[in-house]
Write a protein that binds this DNA or RNA. Structure first.
Lengths: 343, 343
DNA sequence: CTGAAAGCGCTTACAG
DNA sequence: CTGAAAGCGCTTACAG
């Protein structure tokens, strides 16, 4: 009764049926008589048999696998993934498992010739793309994906004319909510911090929300308060130090990511300014660490659970040939201490 | 020249050679004449051809894939993975990629009938197990893995008689370093916080290190200062509140994880105690958030980069049939503000 | 250096 | 309800 690496043929011999019947029985085909089916499954269990997925995949042309591609934002120096996207992995994995998909994880650098290979080599049926990338640089890759008929979904903004599907939060509404909140707290000179160029459409949308809120409140849109910073804590600190040195007055900072907001808080504290008394700070993302910094960071939350589940559902739909629409989710303002709303 | 889903046969037809030669050429076999090889590779590139990995895997009985199994510590309520292990994913993925392995990620619940399936179904050649599990409960699963001849490596302590290989940090040395540091700061009544039972051998080792440091310093090992808490912030807060209510005096807390340390800091602050003036706090793990809490947490760092790379190297060794030894890495005390060393 | 052939372990249309 | 057969796309021992 002991077989080293049992195959369906071994089960068939043991059960006294054909190999085809074993295959059917193990897939719970209604074609097989219940009694036969149970007998076969019993034997399979005893032998600790599992279907060789590679054979099944070769035969069916389906891998039942999703590839999760994370843009490596560190340029290959480190393998630390942006914590916002990192925490999505759990939800994606669980959600995929519940739908019968395995999840392959891979870090992708801008220089890599990525993506195309996963589906072409039949390792994955579709791709999920995660990361705050530079969309101008990535565009070329996305076009290559589309040209190869690869199924993919990006977590990010809906960009006009961009190939493929996207799922992201409504960045403009989020940026607007953050800014309105600051305005309601009496703040009038609100810095917008980050790379809001078209290279980062999600950040640009947050900026549009900011601009709209100011406009609606009758506040001036001062270009001097638009501060560029690449999306790292270090760049944020630097940008804020420069702003402080310039002597320009401001009473609030809306950073387009939490990473930037945390950097800004450090720079402000180092300059002897008190958050939120002197300057209110609001971020975006609700990173796990946002609740742990002091003062706890007020921020715009993107629902990562909803995002993870939505991404899997979308790519599964694409794989099954269903029509899938790009989706925008509602962001949520999380009020903590850095804005000064709580007294 | 356009073929929808090209196979090696298509390349062969186009190149005017046999399919076998194409296969050899694409694998850079020295058997193939260089000119022929380059010609074939050229055509493959033009057609955007990639080897069907499922066929190759079926044929070679190798998946060149590692399965990364994360113990789900939330009991299925949430899919948040312990951030310590989460941040290892990047290093594991990159390291695996550099050795030619794909990485499959999966959340595993205690109730699942896990593990065995990955290798038996030929989806992975070996497993990496990550998580602060309850080793008494997991033991049964590990035995099943071993019985099925599955190759696996666990990030965790080396436990006597436990099947398989482990890679972890030297928890006893880490616990000792943390405690000695507190003693050198003049602390005499040091609470040890966490589940230090044999269910969590890594925590038990940290406790042994603690005990040894006290002993060496001629300090009493007071059982009243050994405080049990399951590894969540909430349980930590509760345990500390109970300790504070008991009126027992103490001047330091060595929490066996950062999660517990952060919970303890909250409980102490809520009770009006000042860290580190009234009570020094030291944790273990160096979670990303440890540097962000106030005061910044002094903790014992486990090198996740070294860990990730070591795990991949170890499982790759196991797969290739090389002898692999269980490994202990050196932990490193990271001194920040919560212990009171900096003035 | 190259080709013809076998075979990895499945799934499924076809025939009964 | 079941079996015989074909075939998914590779890799590699064997023969030349």
């Amino acid at each position: 009764m002991k077989v080293e690496n049992p195959t369906s043929r071994d089960i068939a011999d043991l059960a006294g049926v054909s190999q085809a019947t074993v295959s059917r029985a193990l897939r719970n085909s209604p074609l097989v008589r219940q009694e036969t089916r149970e007998h076969i499954q019993q034997i399979a269990r005893e032998l600790n048999y599992f279907v060789n997925r590679n054979a099944a995949r070769l035969r069916t042309h389906q891998s039942n696998t999703l590839a999760l591609l994370l843009f490596d934002e560190t340029g290959g120096n480190d393998a630390q993934i942006n914590p916002f996207f990192l925490s999505m992995i759990g939800y994606i994995t669980r959600s995929a498992a519940s739908m019968g998909y395995d999840v392959l994880v891979s870090l992708q650098q801008l220089t890599d010739d990525w993506h195309v290979e996963y589906q072409a080599s039949h390792r994955a049926d579709g791709l999920i793309l995660l990361g705050y990338g530079d969309y101008v640089s990535y565009r070329e890759k996305l076009d290559a994906l589309a040209a190869a008929n690869t199924r993919f979904i990006i977590y990010g903004p809906i960009v006009k004319d961009q190939p493929g599907h996207s799922l992201g939060c409504d960045n403009e509404t989020g940026g607007r909510a953050a800014t309105e909140h600051l305005i309601n707290l009496g703040r009038k000179r609100i810095v917008i911090l980050g790379d809001t160029s078209k290279r980062h459409p999600e950040f640009a949308s947050r900026y549009f929300g900011y601009a709209r809120a100011l406009q609606q409140a009758g506040l001036e849109l001062d270009q001097d308060l638009k501060i560029h910073a690449d999306n790292t804590e270090e760049h944020s600190v630097e940008a804020m130090q420069q702003l402080l040195r310039s002597g320009r007055s401001f009473d609030a900072v809306f950073a387009v990511t939490d990473v930037l907001a945390i950097g800004a808080m450090h720079a402000l504290a180092d300059a002897g300014l008190h958050v939120p008394v002197d300057v209110s700070v609001v971020g975006f993302d609700d990173l796990p660490r946002a609740a742990f910094v002091t003062p706890a960071l007020t921020t715009v939350q993107q629902n990562i659970r909803e995002a993870g589940e939505g991404l899997v559902k979308a790519i599964a739909g694409l794989i099954e040939g269903k029509p899938v629409e790009s989706i925008q989710m509602a962001p949520k303002l999380i009020i903590r201490d850095s804005c000064g709303a709580k007294k």
